[in-house]
């Protein structure tokens, strides 16, 4: 079985994230890392590999700037077998459509793939749309937002917390699968894993390797445009009271009444 896991390199969510003057995400000023939510996808891929027990191969795929290779390295340290980093100046500022195009071409080049696995959302853009776009581009079915993943032969079953129901979804490989943070804690790289990762194959592909024209991607080719980004005004400091002998409840009630919530 061939599994490709899509891992994104994102600015650290706990740092002070900013926009550049051209309204693209600042990917230089803030430390980046493998998106936490994609670690869950790597984990599920590794578990499928462990269960299948055959010659299953897990490839980590990342589209992003030079530093983004760190995301691929982390996946290799966790236990992925191979890494692919697609990097090209022209990709900077790409929107979902262009990102999904580059990912789709890379998946195709990676060879016959049984499962394309993704996180539930990237922690910066948080669109939760790339997996569906990728599926559309590859002409594959999608089973998304899985909290439980099971496979047997070429059959896949997932459980998902849908908008209005809890569902079990089934499909036949090849397909695109995304997992949520309910799917189970991701493993930490072990010392052995970190050492082993250094010897694992890691390829860097450019757009021309994929046969994608530079004019099809990047900020110029985007199907959407950001007009303005505004930092949210800081909230004005609120009133904070200490509860003493029931005073807190009374003050809370007064506040809610003053705001007409009662």
């Amino acid at each position: 079985m061939n599994i490709v896991v899509c891992v994104k390199y994102v600015p650290d969510a706990t740092a002070d994230r900013q926009f550049e003057s051209d309204n693209t995400v600042d990917r230089v000023g803030v430390d980046g890392l493998l998106s936490e939510l994609d670690e869950y996808a790597v984990e599920q891929a590794l578990q499928l590999k462990e269960k299948a027990g055959d010659d299953t191969e897990v490839t980590a795929l990342c589209v992003g700037p030079e530093k983004a290779v760190d995301a691929v390295r982390k996946a290799l340290q966790m236990g992925a077998d191979k890494g692919i980093h697609v990097s090209d100046e022209a990709i900077a500022g790409s929107d979902y459509a262009a990102t999904s195009l580059v990912l789709a071409k890379a998946v195709e080049k990676a060879g016959p793939v049984d499962l394309v696995m993704c996180g539930m959302a990237s922690t910066d853009a948080a669109g939760s749309v790339v997996p569906a776009m990728l599926a559309e581009r590859l002409g594959l079915p999608q089973v998304t937002l899985a909290s439980v993943v099971e496979s047997q032969g070429d059959q896949v079953r997932i459980k998902r917390d849908g908008d209005t129901a809890t569902e079990v979804i089934g499909g036949t490989m090849p397909l695109v699968l995304s997992v949520t943070d309910q799917s189970g804690e991701a493993r930490y790289p072990s010392f052995k894993g970190i050492m082993a990762a250094k010897k694992k194959p890691l390829e860097t592909w450019s757009l021309s390797d994929l046969g994608v024209d530079a004019g099809e991607v990047g900020i110029g080719a985007a199907w959407t445009a950001v007009e303005e980004t505004t930092a949210r005004p800081p909230r004005t400091a609120g009133e904070i009271v200490k509860d003493e002998d029931g005073s807190g409840a009374t003050a809370l009630t007064e506040f809610l009444a003053s705001k007409k919530f009662i």
């Binding site: 909230r235 029931g246 009374t250 809370l252």
Partner: peptide
């Protein structure tokens, strides 16, 4: 508390039922 318009420092098990 950095976000609030109004905050109560207290035990929710006493503050909430009383409120």
């Amino acid at each position: 508390f950095e976000l609030v318009d109004f905050g109560v420092v207290g035990d929710l098990n006493t503050v909430l039922p009383a409120a």
